[in-house]
């Protein structure tokens, strides 16, 4: 059961990350098009404003994927000295702290969106982008991260209780087995 959940989460986040990747590529193409247009004496206007929004949204939605790929950097000086039981305890603790912290962040991100909804805020730019439009997906990304962190913690805790330390470590350990770069 916990393995199924983890596999499902990974697959889901792979999709999310693919989507995020496409958004990032689209942003690069948009910037390139604007650079070329400028040479021809014209411009879309507002590319940097839009890149900013893209960065905020790409960042928040990529977080959960990175967590499941064990990409958030941890210092393992003490951890690497321990036997597998000790490592797993540290991993569980670390994951719990992560889940808690990200939940606080997601919780504190909501008032930013709420404020924009309440004031019908628009960016202080000629584009007048409605801020709710870009802050809502950004907030949902952090919420998604928090949700994934708790589910992963629960799944890893079950694995640990079953004594399956190896699976726990591959779910919430300090480094991926193999770096993704080959």
């Amino acid at each position: 059961m916990p393995q199924t959940v983890l596999t499902f989460l990974r697959r889901l986040n792979l999709w999310v990350a693919s989507l995020v990747g496409v958004v990032l590529l689209a942003c690069a193409v948009f910037i390139l098009a604007d650079i070329i247009l400028r040479q021809l004496g014209s411009s879309f206007g507002g590319t940097d404003e839009i890149s900013g929004y893209v960065m905020a949204i790409v960042t928040s939605w990529g977080m959960a994927f990175t967590m499941l790929e064990l990409g958030h950097v941890r210092i393992d000086i003490l951890r690497s000295q321990l036997a597998s039981r000790g490592r797993v305890i540290m991993d569980l603790f670390s994951q719990a702290v992560l889940a808690l912290t990200i939940s606080v962040i997601a919780f504190q991100c909501w008032p930013v969106v709420a404020n924009s909804i309440q004031n019908s805020s628009t960016a202080n730019t000629p584009l007048e982008t409605p801020l709710t439009l870009v802050q809502m997906p950004w907030f949902l990304g952090w919420t998604w991260f928090a949700l994934n962190a708790w589910i992963t913690l629960a799944a890893a805790a079950v694995l640990t209780l079953r004594g399956d330390y190896d699976s726990t470590e591959s779910a919430i350990g300090a480094f991926a087995e193999q770096e993704t770069m080959k």
Partner: peptide
């Protein structure tokens, strides 16, 4: 754009910045 928003929430007591920065929340 955040200076007055946080001021209103009591994150500090006194804030000052260019009024124009805050027009996103108050056209």
């Amino acid at each position: 754009g955040d200076v007055y928003t946080l001021l209103g929430q009591g994150v500090y007591d006194v804030g000052m910045t260019v009024a124009d920065y805050a027009v996103a929340d108050a056209p």
